[in-house]
């Protein structure tokens, strides 16, 4: 991040929290898909979805970040590369694909009310702050060994 003059990210909203994932690890964005529940796994795991014949584990970002889901949100899925695997993150709404000058990204920034362990950086877009999530730290506890 420090080396590149600009930073690309996919910005999405989870409840009332604006967050982002580095564009490099975002595979695609899916419309809401019915998920099959997997009993016995952490509560944030939404379940399995059928992504064109491939099974994908989807984790609900609302439960993961402890943000209540807005009733009007349909719940699109952001497909991410995590530690060599693919995992879906169910979010409230995908807002934008942004390109920010590095100066607008504070690598070790923090925001009040957000667990610092899952914050990779804090971005600033037109005065609005958003959390660039440390996707691996966020999702690793959900994935099997």
């Amino acid at each position: 991040m420090a080396d590149s003059p600009t930073f690309h990210a996919v910005v999405f909203r989870v409840g009332d929290l604006i967050c982002a994932a580095p564009a490099g690890i975002v595979r695609e964005i899916l419309p809401p898909l019915p998920a099959t529940r997997i009993p016995g796994v952490p509560g944030a795991v939404e379940g399995l979805v059928n992504l064109r014949g491939i099974l994908l584990t989807v984790v609900d970002a609302h439960r993961l970040l402890d943000r209540p889901r807005r009733e009007t949100d349909e719940g699109p899925i952001v497909v991410l590369d995590v530690a060599g695997r693919q995992c879906g993150l169910l979010v409230g709404e995908v807002k934008d694909f942004v390109e920010l000058p590095s100066a607008a990204v504070a690598p070790r920034g923090q925001l009040p009310g957000v667990d610092p362990r899952i914050v990779q950086a804090v971005g600033n877009r037109g005065g609005e702050h958003f959390v660039i999530l440390d996707i691996e730290a966020l999702l690793a506890p959900m994935l099997g060994s």
């Binding site: 019915p34 998920a35 099959t36 997997i38 009993p39 016995g40 796994v41 952490p42 795991v45 379940g47 399995l48 979805v49 059928n50 014949g53 491939i54 099974l55 994908l56 584990t57 984790v59 695997r85 693919q86 995992c87 506890p141 959900m142 994935l143 099997g144 060994s145």
Partner: peptide, 27 residues
């Protein structure tokens, strides 16, 4: 039988997953 990355804590009595005729995944 479709391969998939089992989430942490998935009980051992699930041997895998499949996609049913209506497209829904099932364990």
């Amino acid at each position: 039988v479709e391969p998939f990355d089992a989430p942490r804590g998935m009980p051992s009595f699930f041997g895998g997953a499949t996609i049913l005729a209506d497209g829904a995944p099932a364990l």
